[in-house]
């Protein structure tokens, strides 16, 4: 069963035609990287999946259900977690409140909270601190923790290494490697070696379309399919 199926999607920002008939499929439990230069539509692809920027044409399916035109919170409730670019903490809420806000109403909050802190022990000591006061690395861990405490089996992660020191990036890589095996991961990342290391397959996007795809294990920065679309 496909976790995500995007079929001939056209998405606009006002008059700007960003996704121009993009199609891709991500199988359940698969880790997939979206590669490409800045501004080609990678983030918009994730936003279109969540219906944050709803496509004007085409369909988006989550677990074979058509979610096109659905409200974002309803898409999220179907098991889609989002770790956005620049983390987007609720900066005036505490670490614990940021996590609690993501726990579904029918789940045991204490149990889910402990689950998050077991996975990211560094956050437990910061639970009463305002999220806006955390370092970039701590915020990234919190953003991932927040996306995991829901009943999510699909994780959309956007530029997780952006603005982080190399040592912290290693911690983020470890956190993503430690995701449950049955979790589907869609990773948008400018750091191509890191993206290929973390994923099974990749798609290269250019001008709002998929222009290449392949197995991550067999690819590298020297791969012509990747290099020609990543250099200006």
């Amino acid at each position: 069963m496909s976790a995500i199926e995007i079929d001939d999607v056209h998405t606009y920002y006002g008059q700007s035609h960003v996704l121009q008939g993009l199609s891709l499929t991500v199988e359940a439990g698969e880790n997939v990287a979206l590669l490409g230069r800045n501004g080609v539509g990678k983030t918009t692809t994730l936003r279109s999946v969540l219906q944050l920027t709803p496509p004007r044409e085409g369909t988006v399916r989550i677990h074979d259900e058509d979610v096109t035109g659905m409200a974002t919170h309803e898409v999220a409730q179907r098991g889609v977690g989002w770790v956005p670019e620049e983390r987007r903490m609720f900066s005036h809420l505490t670490v614990a409140e940021n996590v609690r806000a993501a726990i579904p109403p029918d789940a045991d909050p204490a149990e889910r909270m402990q689950l998050a802190f077991d996975r990211f022990p560094d956050l437990e000591g910061l639970r009463g601190q305002e999220a806006g006061s955390l370092s970039g690395g701590q915020q990234q861990m919190l953003a991932i923790a927040r996306a995991l405490v829901g009943d999510n089996d699909v994780l959309l992660v956007d530029e997780p290494s952006e603005g982080l020191a190399p040592l912290i990036v290693e911690e983020v890589v470890e956190a993503l490697e430690a995701l449950p095996d049955d979790m589907t991961l869609v990773l948008v990342e400018q750091n191509v070696p890191m993206a290929l290391e973390l994923t099974d397959r990749f798609y290269v996007i250019d001008h709002g379309e998929v222009v290449a795809e392949g197995d991550s294990a067999a690819a590298s920065l020297e791969d012509d399919r990747i290099r020609r679309y990543l250099t200006a």
Binding site: A71, T72, H73, A76, W82, F90, N98, A101, A102, R146
Partner: peptide, 15 residues
């Protein structure tokens, strides 16, 4: 309170 800070992010968390 979460929605006051970032309504879009809150929706993406299922709120």
């Amino acid at each position: 309170r979460a929605g006051s800070e970032d309504a879009e992010m809150a929706q993406a968390l299922g709120i």
